[in-house]
């Protein structure tokens, strides 16, 4: 027994070193599972408040870009207004719909929450964005929600705190989203290779597809957190992969991540129903 105590005393520094390393590495490698519980809630509030102070200053330098992005989005939305369209054919016949369900009223699937970005990074390999909206401001907890900027997709919510939430940016090694070419409709996964924050990578586009530089890439119908048709980026470079039948496309991101100031969180109102239906089949795999 005495020897054990002597050993501990002699190597106390080394043991302390080992203990601290183990704690740190435990945090690091279990982050994805337990971050909501141990990491986010109290500390997220603190860092969020500090980042908010900084952002109050930084915000003024980005006003011009933010304004431009918002006005572009407004233009896009105004162009969708029904009052701006005329009926093409006045001789059209109206038929009474015999369905019990009112087919004119559409069921809302996505609800938008606006949120101010208080901190965002592009300089690391796994980048996260902190937004100033949490459970107290109506954001539902414990689900991954899609996040879009006025210009295109921005990320997905990974943790909801009381007043702040953490968003995994598109510029994160773990981020994946299913996307399609606007022209042909071919789908493939979009990810970030950690190289340049302005470019993403779209794989699995068959060589039979017609692709050209500048073509638009949108979120696809099978994406689980985004509505279809949200801008992902435009094709900047087409890499002809000789070893397979697929192209690798380099995309210019639609969102300017270094000047991100406002985002929208998309709550999927039909998520539970969809998961209930899908879960039994997923387990079978």
């Amino acid at each position: 027994m005495r020897n054990i105590f002597l050993f501990i005393r002699k190597f106390s520094n080394f043991l302390l070193f080992l203990v601290l390393q183990i704690i740190a590495l435990y945090f690091l490698f279990t982050y994805n599972k337990f971050h909501q519980a141990i990491f986010m809630n109290t500390a997220g509030e603190l860092t969020g408040r500090v980042s908010e102070r900084y952002n109050n200053v930084e915000y003024y330098f980005r006003l011009k870009q933010t304004n431009e992005a918002l006005s572009k989005q407004n233009e896009h939305l105004l162009n969708l207004l029904r009052q701006d369209y005329e009926g093409a054919d006045t001789a059209a016949r109206y038929i009474t719909d015999s369905l019990k369900v009112d087919s004119l009223v559409k069921v809302q699937r996505f609800r938008y929450y606006d949120a101010k970005v208080v901190s965002s990074f592009v300089s690391m390999q796994n980048n996260y964005i902190t937004i100033h909206r949490g459970a107290n401001q109506g954001l539902p907890r414990n689900k991954e929600w899609g996040v879009v900027s006025p210009e295109g997709i921005a990320g997905r919510v990974v943790s909801v705190g009381d007043n702040f939430s953490i968003v995994m940016s598109v510029l994160n090694r773990q981020f994946k989203v299913n996307s399609m070419l606007k022209k042909g409709g071919e789908t493939g996964p979009v990810s970030w290779d950690g190289d340049n924050p302005q470019y993403l990578r779209l794989a699995n586009i068959p060589k039979s597809a017609k692709v050209a530089k500048g073509d638009t890439v949108l979120t696809s119908n099978v994406s689980d957190i985004y509505p279809p048709g949200i801008m992902v980026g435009t094709i900047a470079e087409i890499v002809d992969d000789k070893s397979s039948n697929f192209y690798i496309l380099k995309l210019k991101t639609a969102t300017n991540f270094s000047a991100l100031q406002y985002v929208y969180v998309l709550e999927d109102l039909q998520r539970e129903e969809r998961e209930k239906l899908e879960d039994p089949y997923k387990k079978g795999k």
Binding site: N13, Q21, A24, F39, M124, N126, Y128, T130
Partner: peptide, 22 residues
């Protein structure tokens, strides 16, 4: 660890800092 809280990389910089200190 405080730096990690800001950068959302729990434990990464803490581990490296402890090594430097040791």
């Amino acid at each position: 660890l405080l730096l990690d809280y800001f950068l959302k990389t729990p434990g990464l910089h803490a581990a490296a800092c402890v090594l430097v200190a040791y």
